[in-house]
Design a protein around this nucleic acid. Sequence first.
DNA 1: TATTGTTATACTCTATAACTATA
DNA 2: TATAGTTATAGAGTATAACAATA
Lengths: 154, 154
Amino acid sequence: MVISTSRGGSAFLLAQLGAHAATRFGERVAELDLTLPQTGLLRAVATEPGRSQQALAGRLGMPASRLVALVDGLAERGLLERRRNPDDRRLHALHLTATGEEMYGRIAEAARAHENDLLEGLDDAERGVLQSLLGRIAERQGMTPGVHPGYKRA
Amino acid sequence: MVISTSRGGSAFLLAQLGAHAATRFGERVAELDLTLPQTGLLRAVATEPGRSQQALAGRLGMPASRLVALVDGLAERGLLERRRNPDDRRLHALHLTATGEEMYGRIAEAARAHENDLLEGLDDAERGVLQSLLGRIAERQGMTPGVHPGYKRA
DNA sequence: TATTGTTATACTCTATAACTATA
DNA sequence: TATAGTTATAGAGTATAACAATA
Protein backbone atom coordinates (compact mmCIF):
# COMPACT_ATOMS: atom_id res chain seq x y z
CA MET A 1 0.00 0.00 0.00
CA VAL A 2 1.31 3.42 -0.97
CA ILE A 3 0.77 6.16 1.58
CA SER A 4 0.37 9.53 -0.08
CA THR A 5 4.13 10.14 0.23
CA SER A 6 5.98 13.43 0.19
CA ARG A 7 3.94 14.86 3.07
CA GLY A 8 4.42 11.76 5.20
CA GLY A 9 1.80 9.54 6.80
CA SER A 10 -1.15 10.69 8.87
CA ALA A 11 0.74 10.27 12.13
CA PHE A 12 3.42 12.67 10.96
CA LEU A 13 0.86 15.10 9.55
CA LEU A 14 -0.92 15.01 12.88
CA ALA A 15 2.26 15.84 14.79
CA GLN A 16 3.19 18.54 12.30
CA LEU A 17 -0.23 20.19 12.24
CA GLY A 18 -0.62 19.81 15.99
CA ALA A 19 2.59 21.72 16.65
CA HIS A 20 1.58 24.33 14.11
CA ALA A 21 -1.88 24.73 15.67
CA ALA A 22 -0.40 25.05 19.16
CA THR A 23 2.10 27.68 18.02
CA ARG A 24 -0.54 29.74 16.25
CA PHE A 25 -2.89 29.55 19.22
CA GLY A 26 0.00 30.52 21.46
CA GLU A 27 0.47 33.64 19.35
CA ARG A 28 -3.19 34.52 19.81
CA VAL A 29 -3.25 34.16 23.59
CA ALA A 30 0.07 36.01 23.78
CA GLU A 31 -1.95 39.05 22.70
CA LEU A 32 -3.90 38.57 25.92
CA ASP A 33 -0.58 38.38 27.79
CA LEU A 34 -1.03 34.68 28.45
CA THR A 35 1.18 31.68 27.81
CA LEU A 36 -0.22 28.34 26.69
CA PRO A 37 0.23 26.68 30.11
CA GLN A 38 -1.54 29.62 31.78
CA THR A 39 -4.37 29.31 29.27
CA GLY A 40 -4.65 25.59 29.95
CA LEU A 41 -4.86 26.22 33.67
CA LEU A 42 -7.54 28.89 33.26
CA ARG A 43 -9.52 26.47 31.15
CA ALA A 44 -9.15 23.71 33.74
CA VAL A 45 -10.27 25.99 36.58
CA ALA A 46 -13.20 27.30 34.51
CA THR A 47 -14.28 23.74 33.74
CA GLU A 48 -13.89 22.40 37.28
CA PRO A 49 -13.93 25.24 39.79
CA GLY A 50 -13.07 24.66 43.41
CA ARG A 51 -10.54 21.87 42.94
CA SER A 52 -7.38 21.78 45.04
CA GLN A 53 -3.98 22.48 43.54
CA GLN A 54 -2.98 18.86 43.94
CA ALA A 55 -6.08 17.75 42.07
CA LEU A 56 -5.46 20.25 39.28
CA ALA A 57 -1.80 19.32 39.00
CA GLY A 58 -2.72 15.66 38.71
CA ARG A 59 -5.30 16.36 36.05
CA LEU A 60 -2.95 18.54 34.00
CA GLY A 61 -0.11 16.07 34.40
CA MET A 62 2.39 18.44 35.97
CA PRO A 63 4.16 18.54 39.34
CA ALA A 64 2.40 20.57 42.03
CA SER A 65 5.48 22.76 42.37
CA ARG A 66 5.02 23.96 38.84
CA LEU A 67 1.35 24.67 39.32
CA VAL A 68 2.21 26.98 42.23
CA ALA A 69 4.17 29.29 39.96
CA LEU A 70 1.38 29.32 37.37
CA VAL A 71 -1.24 30.09 40.01
CA ASP A 72 0.98 32.79 41.52
CA GLY A 73 1.20 34.63 38.24
CA LEU A 74 -2.50 34.45 37.46
CA ALA A 75 -3.52 35.32 41.03
CA GLU A 76 -1.28 38.40 41.04
CA ARG A 77 -3.06 39.57 37.93
CA GLY A 78 -6.41 39.02 39.60
CA LEU A 79 -7.54 36.32 37.16
CA LEU A 80 -7.98 33.57 39.73
CA GLU A 81 -7.93 33.22 43.49
CA ARG A 82 -7.09 30.67 46.17
CA ARG A 83 -9.85 30.07 48.71
CA ARG A 84 -8.88 28.31 51.90
CA ASN A 85 -11.12 25.48 52.97
CA PRO A 86 -12.14 26.16 56.61
CA ASP A 87 -12.63 22.44 57.27
CA ASP A 88 -9.13 21.53 56.10
CA ARG A 89 -6.93 24.56 56.05
CA ARG A 90 -4.27 22.82 54.02
CA LEU A 91 -6.47 22.95 50.93
CA HIS A 92 -6.55 25.86 48.51
CA ALA A 93 -9.60 25.70 46.25
CA LEU A 94 -9.07 27.53 42.95
CA HIS A 95 -11.71 29.77 41.38
CA LEU A 96 -11.81 32.30 38.57
CA THR A 97 -12.44 35.90 39.59
CA ALA A 98 -14.88 38.08 37.66
CA THR A 99 -11.91 39.39 35.70
CA GLY A 100 -10.85 35.81 35.12
CA GLU A 101 -14.27 34.92 33.73
CA GLU A 102 -14.05 37.85 31.38
CA MET A 103 -10.58 36.77 30.27
CA TYR A 104 -11.85 33.26 29.72
CA GLY A 105 -14.48 34.70 27.38
CA ARG A 106 -11.75 36.34 25.35
CA ILE A 107 -9.81 33.08 25.24
CA ALA A 108 -12.90 31.29 23.92
CA GLU A 109 -13.24 33.94 21.25
CA ALA A 110 -9.59 33.51 20.26
CA ALA A 111 -10.15 29.75 20.08
CA ARG A 112 -13.08 30.20 17.69
CA ALA A 113 -11.08 32.50 15.43
CA HIS A 114 -8.14 30.10 15.56
CA GLU A 115 -10.32 27.14 14.66
CA ASN A 116 -11.83 28.96 11.74
CA ASP A 117 -8.45 30.05 10.47
CA LEU A 118 -7.05 26.55 10.67
CA LEU A 119 -9.94 24.85 8.92
CA GLU A 120 -10.22 27.46 6.20
CA GLY A 121 -10.68 25.57 2.96
CA LEU A 122 -12.83 22.79 4.39
CA ASP A 123 -16.59 22.98 4.03
CA ASP A 124 -18.99 22.20 6.88
CA ALA A 125 -19.43 18.56 5.94
CA GLU A 126 -15.68 18.02 5.78
CA ARG A 127 -15.20 19.74 9.13
CA GLY A 128 -17.75 17.40 10.63
CA VAL A 129 -15.96 14.35 9.26
CA LEU A 130 -12.60 15.60 10.53
CA GLN A 131 -14.00 16.34 13.98
CA SER A 132 -15.49 12.87 14.16
CA LEU A 133 -12.34 11.06 13.05
CA LEU A 134 -10.09 13.06 15.41
CA GLY A 135 -12.50 12.52 18.29
CA ARG A 136 -12.47 8.78 17.73
CA ILE A 137 -8.69 8.66 17.66
CA ALA A 138 -8.46 10.79 20.80
CA GLU A 139 -10.84 8.48 22.62
CA ARG A 140 -9.06 5.36 21.43
CA GLN A 141 -5.71 6.77 22.51
CA GLY A 142 -7.06 7.53 25.96
CA MET A 143 -6.55 11.27 25.78
CA THR A 144 -8.01 13.27 28.67
CA PRO A 145 -10.67 15.57 27.18
CA GLY A 146 -9.65 19.21 27.25
CA VAL A 147 -6.12 18.58 28.50
CA HIS A 148 -3.17 19.20 26.22
CA PRO A 149 -0.40 16.69 26.97
CA GLY A 150 2.18 19.30 26.06
CA TYR A 151 1.25 21.54 28.97
CA LYS A 152 3.48 19.11 30.80
CA ARG A 153 6.46 20.62 29.09
CA ALA A 154 5.53 23.48 26.70
CA MET B 1 -23.62 25.80 15.39
CA VAL B 2 -22.71 23.39 18.13
CA ILE B 3 -19.23 21.95 17.91
CA SER B 4 -19.04 18.47 19.36
CA THR B 5 -18.22 19.83 22.84
CA SER B 6 -16.47 18.18 25.72
CA ARG B 7 -13.46 17.21 23.66
CA GLY B 8 -13.03 20.70 22.23
CA GLY B 9 -12.94 21.81 18.61
CA SER B 10 -10.86 20.27 15.85
CA ALA B 11 -8.04 22.75 16.35
CA PHE B 12 -7.64 21.68 19.95
CA LEU B 13 -7.97 18.01 19.07
CA LEU B 14 -5.29 18.49 16.46
CA ALA B 15 -2.91 20.09 18.97
CA GLN B 16 -3.69 17.45 21.56
CA LEU B 17 -3.29 14.50 19.23
CA GLY B 18 -0.24 16.02 17.59
CA ALA B 19 1.56 16.30 20.92
CA HIS B 20 0.51 12.78 21.80
CA ALA B 21 1.71 11.41 18.47
CA ALA B 22 5.05 13.20 18.80
CA THR B 23 5.56 11.89 22.33
CA ARG B 24 4.74 8.32 21.36
CA PHE B 25 7.02 8.44 18.33
CA GLY B 26 9.71 9.93 20.54
CA GLU B 27 9.43 6.89 22.79
CA ARG B 28 9.86 4.60 19.81
CA VAL B 29 12.98 6.28 18.45
CA ALA B 30 14.36 6.50 21.99
CA GLU B 31 14.68 2.71 21.73
CA LEU B 32 17.06 3.37 18.85
CA ASP B 33 18.92 5.82 21.09
CA LEU B 34 17.69 8.77 19.08
CA THR B 35 15.93 11.99 20.05
CA LEU B 36 13.21 13.51 17.88
CA PRO B 37 15.45 16.34 16.59
CA GLN B 38 18.12 13.79 15.67
CA THR B 39 15.52 11.73 13.87
CA GLY B 40 14.30 14.80 12.00
CA LEU B 41 17.83 15.59 10.91
CA LEU B 42 18.49 12.04 9.71
CA ARG B 43 15.29 12.21 7.71
CA ALA B 44 16.28 15.55 6.18
CA VAL B 45 19.72 14.27 5.20
CA ALA B 46 18.24 11.06 3.81
CA THR B 47 15.77 13.06 1.73
CA GLU B 48 18.25 15.64 0.47
CA PRO B 49 21.80 14.30 0.74
CA GLY B 50 24.76 16.55 0.16
CA ARG B 51 23.28 19.79 1.42
CA SER B 52 25.38 22.18 3.49
CA GLN B 53 24.75 22.69 7.19
CA GLN B 54 23.48 26.20 6.55
CA ALA B 55 20.99 24.89 4.00
CA LEU B 56 19.82 22.16 6.34
CA ALA B 57 19.49 24.54 9.28
CA GLY B 58 17.40 26.89 7.17
CA ARG B 59 15.16 24.09 6.02
CA LEU B 60 14.65 22.73 9.52
CA GLY B 61 14.10 26.20 10.91
CA MET B 62 16.86 26.11 13.50
CA PRO B 63 20.03 28.16 14.03
CA ALA B 64 23.17 26.72 12.45
CA SER B 65 24.82 26.57 15.87
CA ARG B 66 22.24 24.09 17.03
CA LEU B 67 22.64 21.94 13.95
CA VAL B 68 26.35 21.62 14.69
CA ALA B 69 25.66 19.87 17.99
CA LEU B 70 23.15 17.53 16.36
CA VAL B 71 25.57 16.66 13.56
CA ASP B 72 28.39 16.16 16.05
CA GLY B 73 26.43 13.57 17.98
CA LEU B 74 25.29 11.64 14.93
CA ALA B 75 28.72 11.81 13.29
CA GLU B 76 30.43 10.46 16.41
CA ARG B 77 28.09 7.50 16.27
CA GLY B 78 28.94 6.96 12.63
CA LEU B 79 25.43 7.63 11.37
CA LEU B 80 26.31 10.56 9.13
CA GLU B 81 29.43 12.29 7.88
CA ARG B 82 30.65 15.70 6.82
CA ARG B 83 32.29 15.80 3.40
CA ARG B 84 34.33 18.85 2.57
CA ASN B 85 33.70 20.42 -0.80
CA PRO B 86 37.10 20.75 -2.56
CA ASP B 87 35.88 23.71 -4.60
CA ASP B 88 34.78 25.67 -1.53
CA ARG B 89 36.41 24.30 1.57
CA ARG B 90 34.07 26.21 3.85
CA LEU B 91 31.19 23.91 2.94
CA HIS B 92 30.46 20.63 4.70
CA ALA B 93 28.08 18.47 2.71
CA LEU B 94 26.13 16.03 4.86
CA HIS B 95 25.58 12.40 3.92
CA LEU B 96 24.31 9.29 5.66
CA THR B 97 26.87 6.53 6.19
CA ALA B 98 25.97 2.90 5.50
CA THR B 99 25.19 2.56 9.19
CA GLY B 100 23.07 5.67 8.93
CA GLU B 101 21.09 4.22 6.04
CA GLU B 102 20.48 1.13 8.07
CA MET B 103 19.33 3.21 11.02
CA TYR B 104 17.05 5.17 8.73
CA GLY B 105 15.43 1.90 7.70
CA ARG B 106 14.71 1.14 11.35
CA ILE B 107 13.26 4.61 11.80
CA ALA B 108 10.94 4.05 8.85
CA GLU B 109 9.86 0.77 10.39
CA ALA B 110 9.14 2.49 13.70
CA ALA B 111 7.13 5.14 11.83
CA ARG B 112 4.97 2.47 10.18
CA ALA B 113 4.29 0.75 13.49
CA HIS B 114 3.55 4.11 15.09
CA GLU B 115 1.14 5.07 12.34
CA ASN B 116 -0.69 1.79 12.61
CA ASP B 117 -0.94 2.07 16.36
CA LEU B 118 -2.30 5.59 16.19
CA LEU B 119 -4.92 4.87 13.54
CA GLU B 120 -6.08 1.64 15.12
CA GLY B 121 -9.84 1.69 14.97
CA LEU B 122 -10.12 3.40 11.59
CA ASP B 123 -10.71 1.31 8.49
CA ASP B 124 -8.82 1.85 5.25
CA ALA B 125 -11.42 4.17 3.77
CA GLU B 126 -11.46 6.33 6.88
CA ARG B 127 -7.67 6.47 6.93
CA GLY B 128 -7.72 7.69 3.36
CA VAL B 129 -10.20 10.44 4.18
CA LEU B 130 -8.18 11.53 7.20
CA GLN B 131 -4.94 11.59 5.21
CA SER B 132 -6.59 13.69 2.53
CA LEU B 133 -8.12 16.20 4.93
CA LEU B 134 -4.90 16.60 6.93
CA GLY B 135 -2.88 16.97 3.74
CA ARG B 136 -5.14 19.73 2.50
CA ILE B 137 -4.90 21.62 5.80
CA ALA B 138 -1.12 21.23 5.85
CA GLU B 139 -0.87 22.62 2.33
CA ARG B 140 -3.23 25.49 3.07
CA GLN B 141 -1.27 26.38 6.19
CA GLY B 142 1.96 26.44 4.24
CA MET B 143 3.63 23.64 6.18
CA THR B 144 6.97 22.47 4.77
CA PRO B 145 6.50 18.82 3.77
CA GLY B 146 8.40 16.44 6.02
CA VAL B 147 9.55 19.10 8.48
CA HIS B 148 8.14 19.16 11.99
CA PRO B 149 7.88 22.76 13.22
CA GLY B 150 8.55 21.55 16.75
CA TYR B 151 12.07 20.41 15.90
CA LYS B 152 12.73 24.09 16.38
CA ARG B 153 12.20 23.62 20.08
CA ALA B 154 11.42 20.02 21.08
C1' DT C 1 3.07 10.37 60.71
C1' DA C 2 0.80 11.84 56.34
C1' DT C 3 -0.69 15.39 53.19
C1' DT C 4 -1.03 20.19 51.01
C1' DG C 5 1.25 23.70 49.43
C1' DT C 6 5.75 26.24 48.90
C1' DT C 7 10.59 27.23 48.10
C1' DA C 8 15.36 26.09 46.61
C1' DT C 9 18.35 23.90 43.66
C1' DA C 10 20.07 21.85 39.71
C1' DC C 11 19.56 20.37 35.00
C1' DT C 12 18.29 20.48 30.05
C1' DC C 13 17.54 22.83 26.09
C1' DT C 14 17.95 26.68 23.33
C1' DA C 15 19.24 31.10 21.09
C1' DT C 16 22.62 34.92 20.66
C1' DA C 17 26.77 36.34 19.69
C1' DA C 18 31.73 36.02 19.47
C1' DC C 19 35.27 33.55 16.98
C1' DT C 20 38.00 30.79 13.15
C1' DA C 21 38.68 29.34 8.49
C1' DT C 22 38.05 29.94 3.99
C1' DA C 23 36.68 32.71 0.13
C1' DT D 1 34.78 42.10 3.42
C1' DA D 2 31.56 38.23 3.40
C1' DT D 3 30.17 33.50 4.37
C1' DA D 4 30.31 28.50 6.53
C1' DG D 5 31.02 26.49 10.41
C1' DT D 6 32.16 26.34 15.42
C1' DT D 7 32.44 27.52 20.29
C1' DA D 8 31.08 30.13 24.51
C1' DT D 9 27.82 32.22 27.21
C1' DA D 10 23.58 33.24 29.13
C1' DG D 11 18.60 32.69 29.56
C1' DA D 12 14.11 30.22 29.89
C1' DG D 13 11.62 26.43 31.51
C1' DT D 14 11.44 22.37 34.06
C1' DA D 15 11.65 18.55 37.58
C1' DT D 16 13.42 16.91 42.07
C1' DA D 17 13.70 17.29 46.52
C1' DA D 18 13.83 19.77 50.85
C1' DC D 19 10.75 22.50 53.80
C1' DA D 20 6.56 24.53 56.47
C1' DA D 21 1.92 24.28 57.85
C1' DT D 22 -1.94 21.61 58.90
C1' DA D 23 -4.21 17.39 59.83
